[in-house]
Every structure is written in C-alpha cells, then in structure tokens.
Design a protein around this nucleic acid. Structure first.
Length: 257
DNA sequence: ATGGCTACGATCCGTAGA
C-alpha cells in the first residue's frame, strides 16, 4: 500500500508529469494540492484512464485538493466541518480500509499578517476536526502540504529562516498539536539522510543548491504507523523541465496490518 | 540588494505562493 502527496502547482500544467509519475511510482492513492482549477475543468477522464478514481474539491486560480485512488472511494467530505472557508483546502475520503484527509494548509505569507492569523486559526480548526476523525477512524492518514517545517533539520538554512513564516514557533506549536492527537510524522519513523526537503524555491536556483524546506508530510495514526515500512521524498519530478516547486512525499504500509 | 521564478487571469501588470 503506497500513499503519496504532491502539491502539483496547477493540475493543468502538471498533468503530463502527473500521469508519468503515476505510471512509474504506481501509488495506491495520491493526495493532490494546488489544483488551481474548478471541478468542471479537472482532468478526471485522463486520470480515470490511468486507473484512478478522483475525489475533487477545486477552485478557480487558487487552492484546490483531490484524492486519487486505484480502488473505489467512499464517504467523501470536503472542507472542515464548522469552519466556514471559501478556500478549498481539505478533502477526506475512505479508501483502502483507511480514512485519508488531504490538506493544503495556508501559506501564512508573513508572521503577524492577516494571512498568518488565518493560518493559525485554520490549524486550530484542523486539529479539532482530526480529533473527531480519529474517534471514528483509528486508521487515519493525513497527507498534504502543511506549509510548516517541523524542526530546524527540516530547513536548509535555519539561521536565515529563524522566526520566519513556515518555521515560527506558533506554527510549529500548531504542528505539534496535531502530533499530540496521536498522529506521527511518517518520515521520522525511520533513519533518514540529512537535508531531505520537499519544496525548493523556483528562484535563486533553489533546487540545484538544495535550498529547501520539508513541508509536505504524511501523518499516520498509531495503528497505521505500526504498519508503515518506509517514508521518503521522490525528488525526481523536481528535476524535470517546468516542474512543480514541490516534490511528492510517500509512505508505504504493509498490507493486512 | 528583501529581489531573484512560476501560474493565473487579467491584459502587457498585479496577486499569490513559500
């Protein structure tokens, strides 16, 4: 069972790369973020032809999330219940005997900005939502672009980033509040090489310098964490012409567990 | 030097991302 998440930064632009990646990596399910397109323009037919059903919550120009699965999808729910939000950032579905929540967490723009306050409010609502989901679904995975680098080792230059958005203490506290629910960062279940990131700035040759952040994550409930056999980032798509600025993050679970 | 890309939807620049 291979579960992945990828912020594609426009499903329209990235569709050829997405189809290539699906054919090569063969994930059983994939959470997508930043579709930047409305539902009617989502390339459902192409993805179904590739063997994936799609649960989509799209939006013109901004945001937009989807869950692809190679098996039927049930109990699809978009958004965070009780948290009114125009921005399409969350979709959940029951697939492969587990509950999967796909998230595109707010960027936050700059510490102290209105968008930063929104980001923190949004994370508080997400925590409450996930607490309820865990009650109903002990087999819970939360995958997506969290826009938080949890620790300094997830940051290429911690000094330069100190106190900035994505690493500020309130954001990291919001991240830890998710872990406190009983969720685990699948990547940190294993020995990992240093300087593994999932996002690199398009500017300043960020990727070539490996000047990145690890902000795309797969969180697993305790039951799923026990079944997790690996967690990695696939940098290959970031090397292509016209890439997304994010690379896919993956977790593998032993089946039957 | 607080910029530097990229995508989008509006035009030929502004907004947003991270």
């Amino acid at each position: 069972m291979k579960l992945a998440t990828w912020n594609v930064n426009s499903i329209k632009v990235r569709l050829p790369q997405l189809l290539d990646w699906l054919a090569g990596a063969k994930p059983d399910m994939l959470c997508l973020q930043e579709l930047k397109t409305e539902d009617a323009k989502f390339p459902r037919a192409e993805l179904e032809a590739a063997g994936y059903t799609c649960a989509v919550s799209g939006q013109k120009t901004y945001n937009g999330v989807a869950i692809l699965s190679n098996t039927p999808t049930g109990e699809i729910a978009a958004g965070i219940p009780g948290f009114a939000d125009e921005q399409k950032r969350v979709i959940a579905a029951t697939v492969h005997g587990m509950r999967v929540v796909c998230v595109y967490c707010p960027n936050g723009q700059a510490v102290g900005s209105d968008k930063y306050e929104y980001k923190l409010r949004w994370f508080a609502a997400l925590r409450d939502y996930l607490a309820a989901e865990l009650q109903n679904h002990p087999r819970l995975a939360v995958a997506g672009d969290f826009n938080v680098a949890p620790e300094d080792r997830d940051v290429h230059d911690p000094k330069a980033w100190e106190g900035q958005v994505h690493v500020s203490e309130p954001e990291r506290a919001a991240w830890r509040a998710l872990l406190a629910l009983g969720l685990q960062d699948s990547f940190r279940l294993f020995e990992q090489p240093e300087k593994v990131y999932s996002w690199w700035d398009y500017r300043m040759m960020g990727f070539r310098r490996n000047a990145g952040l690890r902000i795309d994550h797969v969180l697993l409930s305790e039951e799923l964490a026990r079944a997790c056999t690996s967690s990695t980032v696939d940098k290959a798509p970031r090397k292509l012409e016209r890439p997304s600025d994010h690379a896919p993050a993956l977790a593998e679970l032993s089946t039957g567990a």
